[in-house]
């Protein structure tokens, strides 16, 4: 991956920023202009939690947003520049889970797994925290580089919900940023955290799932051990083991074709993007 060299200062260019909600001094929205990038950021989340609104706020694009589920059926891509670093942003279809077999859930899951984004932002509805965490916990099994965007915090306040985001961050082991994306609240902070995480300057200690099931735990441990032996350094051996136990066709294929092992080679990234784009 080439390092992006920026000539003009980002702060100066922000004067030309089209939107009035441009409240981040170092953000430049690049729309779909992405010839190369330093980091890839994936946006995951339950349907109708404001992923597309966040995507639009950051890229300056106008991906259709409406107040109902299932609008984003394919993934949308856009770009932004922050502090001289270029980010490619990928808006994934809304999903409740990464374990199911439906076509658009697979799009999301495959991107987080094979696309290997530098950061995955999981957008969570603060009013439906439990369901959002269901997805966060699954994502944490695949990748450590997760930032939780605790969105719709304004609605939660109206519903008299108080959410202790510090406790949440402690339990999850990854940063949690409360936002009201529709009103631009919390966006600068979220971008700062994403930027730090992308550069690897944000240590995480992701929550590990406890399957509370001795037979299952034993099976996962055995398979994960074998996987780690075959693919040294595989970051999500436990999760892959679980998928194999569940007879997940696409993971079995990845193991057979050796694409799972390729995940270890840093230079494998461009090919994997192509693979994913099929």
């Amino acid at each position: 991956m080439s390092v992006y060299v920026e000539t003009a200062t980002a702060a100066k260019e922000c004067g030309a920023c089209p939107s009035t909600s441009c409240n981040t001094a170092h953000l430049t929205r690049l729309g779909i202009k992405m010839d190369d990038w330093d980091y890839v950021v994936a946006l995951a989340g339950n349907p109708n939690t404001g992923k597309s609104t966040l995507f639009n706020a950051w890229t300056g694009l106008r991906q259709h947003v409406g107040n109902w589920n299932g609008k984003t059926v394919t993934r949308a891509e856009g770009a932004l520049r922050y502090n001289d670093r270029k980010f490619k942003l990928v808006d994934l279809p809304g999903t409740y889970s990464l374990l199911s077999m439906s076509v658009h859930e697979e799009v999301a899951r495959d991107f987080v797994l094979f696309g290997r984004p530098d950061v995955t932002v999981v957008v969570v509805d603060a009013n439906r925290l439990e369901r959002g965490l269901h997805l966060v916990l699954q994502t944490l099994e695949i990748t450590d580089r997760v930032v939780v965007c605790l969105n719709l915090i304004d609605e939660a306040r109206r519903n008299n919900l108080k959410i202790d985001e510090r406790a949440l961050a402690r339990d999850l082991g990854v940063p949690v940023v409360p936002t009201a994306v529709r009103h631009g609240e919390g966006l600068p902070e979220l971008l700062r955290v994403v930027d730090e995480m992308a550069q690897g300057r944000y240590p995480t200690r992701p929550h590990r799932l406890n399957y509370r099931d001795a037979a299952l735990e034993a099976a996962v441990a055995q398979l994960a051990g074998q996987l780690e032996g075959m693919f040294p350094g595989l970051p999500n051996a436990r999760w892959v083991a679980l998928r194999l136990l569940e007879n997940d066709e696409s993971i079995i294929r990845a193991v057979r074709e050796g694409t799972l092992g390729d995940l270890q080679r840093p230079d494998a990234f461009p090919e994997l993007m192509q693979l994913e784009a099929r």
Partner: peptide, 11 residues
């Protein structure tokens, strides 16, 4: 099968 998964995913 698939329907059960959907129910479970919804919590």
């Amino acid at each position: 099968s698939a329907e059960r998964r959907r129910m479970l995913d919804l919590g």
